[in-house]
């Protein structure tokens, strides 16, 4: 149980233990609460990260859920706040509010094949679910990770993907949109992988995270394979200013993505998905 601060809008200071450069524009922060204590979360949940004077943004937790001494975030620099986060060094302090939001229902998938489908930095929010699945590996049928990146240089957590691939009880499919250099792997969108991957559609739970268009195609491919919409889970992104259902910004139809999501069961939101500019 995490104890929330009295004011849900006041961040807790966390010190950066280490910065790991992942890709040219992506890095991972390992954090520890300044005041000591643990930080527990469930895979799929996110925090609001505050950089002194620069602002606050929602970032998913990308670390090991069984490890509550360290908080891990993987961030792609795209604008002012994420760039400011990228300039921080070990020893600096960020403000943290959270954890917020709904988790990936990993336990619900026990007994099923588990299909993890990620695009780009969308692998980061799924990594805790992968850790949880690996920790409970005997409880699943197949464990299949399908990951798409723009180019080979954009493949996140490459070493880890290779490590998982080398296990005989995990299938890892990595595909890139554009091959460059030495790439001998698959080229094409991740949805093509979904169409062929060796899971049993009638007994599969799928966790999907990536750009909204990618998720749309992935969900279509899963439906075509015959995976039930109630067993497909997607993680949504909307503008967020509070994370706790107070600011209104993250609304998507009747849902507050910060509180009712970010992870949604696809069958609960299937009607919203096709509506443009919602």
């Amino acid at each position: 149980m995490t104890v929330l601060p009295a004011n849900p809008m006041s961040p807790r200071p966390f010190r950066i233990l280490k910065v790991v450069r992942e890709l040219s524009d992506t890095f991972t922060l390992l954090l520890q609460p300044e005041t000591g204590g643990a930080f527990s979360f469930r895979p799929g949940q996110f925090n609001m990260l505050y950089v002194f004077g620069a602002g606050e943004v929602p970032i998913s937790i990308s670390g090991e859920p069984a490890e509550d001494r360290q908080l891990v975030h993987t961030i792609r620099s795209v604008g002012p706040v994420t760039q400011a986060l990228g300039r921080l060094k070990a020893g600096d302090v960020v403000g943290v509010r959270g954890p917020f939001g709904t988790p990936w229902p990993v336990e619900d998938a026990f007994g099923d094949d588990l299909a993890i489908i990620a695009g780009g930095v969308g692998l980061a929010p799924l990594r805790p679910a992968i850790y949880q699945a690996l920790a409970n590996r005997p409880r699943f049928g197949k464990l299949i990770i399908m990951y798409g990146a723009r180019t080979p240089q954009d493949i996140l957590f490459r070493k880890e993907l290779e490590k998982w691939r080398s296990r005989f009880d995990v299938n890892v499919h990595v595909t890139v949109d554009h091959a460059t250099g030495q790439w001998a792997g698959r080229v094409g969108v991740v949805t093509k992988v979904v169409a062929k991957a060796g899971f049993d559609p009638l007994h599969t739970t799928a966790l999907v995270c990536g750009p909204e268009v990618m998720m749309r195609y992935a969900v279509e491919a899963l439906e075509e394979r015959g995976v039930a919409a109630s067993k497909v889970h997607v993680s949504m992104e909307r503008n967020m200013k509070c994370g706790v259902g107070l600011c209104g910004h993250c609304q998507w139809g009747p849902h507050f993505v910060c509180r009712d999501g970010p992870v949604f069961r696809f069958s609960d939101v299937a009607a919203l998905f096709p509506v443009r500019e919602l």
Partner: peptide
Amino acid sequence: CFCTTVEDITDLSGDIAERWRQWDSC
């Protein structure tokens, strides 16, 4: 209507930062 946004400001020295919440509109 209850929507709000936030604004972050720093003083000239850069040593003091404030976070303000203000009404916003969809």
